[in-house]
Design a protein around this nucleic acid. Structure first.
Lengths: 262, 262
DNA sequence: GTGACTCTTCCGCTCAGCGGAAGCCATGAT
DNA sequence: ATCATGGCTTCCGCTGAGCGGAAGAGTCAC
């Protein structure tokens, strides 16, 4: 974090957060810890390019040009693009919440969320993060993550959200083993007392876990009926990504009889 | 732009494009017009922060951290968030393509697209741009855009995509007046011979046009039945954004549902 | 008015950034 | 085995881009 220009520019971008998406020059200056003059110059250049925009009141916000470039992130919208049809199917079939998330660091980063108007409320947000140990997608991601990541999560603090949150490393380890055995993760009120989620991992072309998808339903509903649908959707996305694991594990051997193999 | 560090950093980001989302260091260097050494240093810093990532082969791609920050763009995902439920409704009712776009410069920037698997193919892409004069959302945006933007588009070249594309400024002016009168824009094979789209503008809290949404159906289908649905969805989003225009019911004069001849 | 706040422009000092050079490590051809 | 090519990385001394204090303009509230 030297005093390089690049780091300052990035620090200015960092300052924006979900709860403060619009900032004045002075706010930017203070929050980024940069002199006002310096901020003024850098922000001016960012705005000229389109990384930032000014609204009517003169406040700055993240610009569309930056959004456009960021839309090229393969692990962001790229993944989403492949997953969307399957998410839609899941959504249509259940009319609940459907989510897609990837592992970033030791958190789940949410790429997509489809929510019916009447569905149970969830606190996830597209572009937002939630902890791995207390969410369906988080457990699915963690169960198949590299050991190094697993250990970091198991070692770190496991904050409690509800009486059902798994906060004990040993319990969490057992839970992860269970996820690997079943191929799906069930988060029954681990994060919120009102919600239950069923999640499954998505694998990429190199058989690597790349994402997880889930559906969130009101707590109390039996998760059983949702499991095949979630699993099928995850397998569908994996196949779309070229995963050999998905090819070798056909959804229904009988149905494949009619279609010629590739 | 001057030889400032900021401009160089931005130029490096600019280099990424839909058809080349992964680039080697040398490619970045060449395409950005920067010395290899300079590129190496800057890219290193960007990657350390997470604006860029390196894949297994050492190539660089847009990073999730940048995507995460860009997700805070009020005119990007912010708008999308409000619009999504209405887009879903439209999608569900029609099982076709549903799109959301905003005006950026003199082009339409697509924020969202929901596509049924069997729906007619469309060339739009989330994060992509298309010209205003040849798309449904484009016409809807242009019809309500500031005069200055309209003039720039009318003056500029109006490339032809199909025999039906409006390439004459006078015809385009008439078409825009028609859109304002009807409250919806119909693009019958203006961009592709296979597709027809019905679009309507979305207004913000200050009665300003902020976006447009559309549905795309196979060419040949009568657009009439879709018009009320598209208009209702657009009004729904406008209301969600706090538009006073949407709260008051539309003037009865706008009941002219006559479909324009191709 | 006065004070507190914002944003913007100016300008001379200095250190961050620059980029040539050199070297490393792969491929692939001879 | 030798050379060539094309990638990537590290090193280091020169220099001008960036820095930020100072001054001033504009805006709101009391």
């Amino acid at each position: 974090m030297g005093p390089t220009v690049t780091s300052r520019v990035l620090r200015l971008l960092e300052v924006f957060a979900p709860d403060r998406p619009r900032l004045t020059l002075s706010q930017l200056s203070r929050r980024a810890g940069l002199p006002l003059t310096t901020t003024h110059r850098l922000v001016g250049e960012l705005a000229a390019w389109g990384a930032l925009e000014r609204d009517d009141e003169g406040r700055y916000r993240i610009g569309l040009r930056l959004w456009e470039v960021a839309a090229l992130a393969p692990r962001g919208l790229g993944l989403r693009e492949h997953a969307m049809p399957y998410l839609e199917d899941l959504y249509e079939a259940t009319r609940q919440n459907v989510q897609l998330a990837v592992l970033d660091g030791t958190e789940a980063l949410y790429l997509e969320r489809l929510s019916a108007r009447g569905a149970v409320g969830v606190i996830s947000r597209v572009g937002g993060r939630l902890p791995l140990h207390a969410t369906g997608v988080g457990l699915a991601l963690l169960a198949y993550a590299e050991p190094e990541v697993q250990e970091r999560v198991l070692a770190g603090p496991l904050p409690r959200f509800t009486p059902y949150t798994v906060t004990n490393p040993r319990d969490l380890r057992r839970k992860l083993a269970e996820v690997r055995r079943a191929g799906v993760a069930i988060s029954d009120r681990l994060l919120e007392l009102t919600a239950l989620s069923v999640a499954a991992p998505v694998f990429g072309a190199a058989e690597e876990p790349v994402a997880a998808l889930s559906i969130v339903v009101p707590a109390g509903e039996p998760p059983g009926p949702y499991i095949p649908a979630v699993r099928a959707a995850a397998r569908g996305v994996s196949r779309a990504l070229g995963s050999p694991r998905a090819r070798a594990w056909p959804p229904s051997a009988l149905r494949n009889l009619g279609t010629p193999a590739p």
